[in-house]
Amino acid sequence: MAAIHDLFTSPIKVINVGLPSFHADLKSQNVPVVHVNWQPPAGGNARVAALLDRVRRWQAQVRAGKKE
C-alpha cells in the first residue's frame, strides 16, 4: 500500500503512451507529462517482439533478484 500512499501524497507525473490528445490535456493543466511517440514494437514483427519481451522479462527478473 506504500506505493499508493506515495501516489496520493505526491504531485502526479505522467508518461503518456498513446493518444497525443491526452498529453495535450495534461500539459494544458501544467501537469508534468512526457509524450511517447509510440510505435508497434519490433516494427510490427510479432515474433521479434515476443523475443524482445522474453529478454526484457529476464532482465527484470535478474534486477529483482539482485535487489533481494
Binding site: V34, V36, W38
Partner: peptide, 27 residues
C-alpha cells in the same frame, strides 16, 4: 526530443509515477 518508447519517456521524466496507456489492445 520526443521519446519513442516508455523507457525513453522514463529517461525524460524519471520520477513519473503514472503511465497513461492508450495503445491498441494487443500491445
Amino acid at each position: 526530443y520526443t521519446p519513442t518508447s516508455q523507457e525513453g519517456g522514463a529517461r525524460v521524466l524519471p520520477d513519473a509515477n503514472m503511465v497513461l496507456i492508450s495503445v491498441p489492445g494487443q500491445f
